[in-house]
């Protein structure tokens, strides 16, 4: 197994699927000649050409709208949104069209579109460029929402997303692109809608995904040095949500901390906690703890911003509170 970065994993997934299937193409702002704002599609334009690596105007409504239309006509577009914050400019296309067209026309066609969007805070970009609104997208039936936390999952999930026939919001975290991990050399597909135990333990369960998975790994190692062994369940997909491994782990540890980067109100933690209470109330030995971003638009100032985002120390403290 090769050790590669998250950026390389995502890049490989797109490259391999474009090589495999001519119906797959990528479009978005600066995906072509520039090579991708985050360098994910570097070299693609020269290899695949401008028809399949399509630079677009800065116009998110028509980026997602045209991708929807191309999907209706049978192609398999990957539409890149430079950041997930810009998805709000395309919200009508994502929510009213990607998610709903198939049902509204009685299943006459499919919308096999993958919307890649980069999210997350912590880079001093100000409030409009730093959001983690994953739960917003997970609210809508008809969409699938995927957000990997390791290079291996990023590659396998993205390849699956491109091959399957439903609209997928594929949410990447900008601060994870340099994270390295082992990725299988052979064909590697990870199913959408399957949560995964990423670390075994017996004292408490951390339920998390994406960037917060990486922070939870660090927290888990420090807790381990104090003799506390946490189990980490990585959601990987927010919709459809696979509660199986979450409930199973909670039944074993009887304590849970849910860690997300987005805001707490109406968020991923709210959903997971409610479901745990619905499905495994009798197994709770402590109130379920939610750790999330403080309820504030993220400020530019470094310390203020970091203060608003869950840190490793916060995760450690939260785990200790449920013990």
């Amino acid at each position: 197994m090769a050790v590669i970065t998250m950026r390389e994993a995502i890049s490989q997934a797109i490259w391999e699927e474009m090589e495999r299937d001519e119906d797959v193409f990528i479009m978005g702002e600066e995906v072509g000649i520039w090579g991708g704002t985050y360098a994910v599609t570097r070299g693609f334009y020269d290899h695949f050409g401008g028809e399949r690596v399509r630079d677009t105007p800065i116009a998110e409504g028509v980026i997602i709208g045209a991708a929807n239309g191309a999907a209706m006509a049978g192609l398999r577009p990957i539409a890149e949104l430079m950041t997930i914050n810009f998805a709000f400019l395309a919200m009508d296309q994502i929510v009213n069209h990607s998610a709903k067209l198939r049902l509204m026309f009685g299943g006459q066609f499919k919308i096999p579109i993958v919307i890649r969007a980069v999210g997350g805070g912590g880079r001093q970009l100000g409030a409009t460029h730093s959001q983690t609104p994953d739960a917003v997208f997970a609210h809508f039936p008809g969409l699938k929402v995927v957000s990997p936390g390791t290079p291996s999952d990023a590659k396998g999930l993205l390849k699956t997303a491109i091959r399957q026939d439903d609209p997928v919001m594929f949410i990447e975290n900008a601060t994870l692109y340099q994270v390295r991990g082992e990725v299988p050399d052979e064909e590697h597909l990870v199913p959408i809608g399957v949560s995964k135990v990423q670390r075994e333990g017996h004292d408490a369960t951390i339920v998390t995904y994406s960037k917060m998975l990486q922070k939870s790994f660090v927290a888990a190692e420090r807790l381990s040095s104090e003799g506390i062994e946490v189990e980490i369940v990585d959601l990987r997909t927010l919709r459809p949500l696979d509660m199986g491994p979450v409930v199973q782990s909670f039944k074993k540890t009887n304590r849970a901390v849910i860690v997300e980067e987005g805001w707490k109100s109406y968020g991923v933690g709210a959903e997971i906690a409610a479901r745990l209470y619905e499905e495994a109330f009798d197994y709770a030995d402590a109130p379920i703890k939610r750790l999330a971003q403080k309820e504030v638009p993220l400020p530019y100032n470094h310390d203020l911003e970091q203060h608003a985002i869950p840190q490793v120390e916060d995760i450690i403290m939260a785990v200790k509170e449920v013990l």
Partner: peptide, 16 residues
């Protein structure tokens, strides 16, 4: 107006 981008994409697919 939302179907106008859809039309753009369908025409792109035909040209493609």
């Amino acid at each position: 107006g939302a179907h106008m981008p859809l039309a753009t994409g369908m025409a792109m697919a035909d040209k493609y």
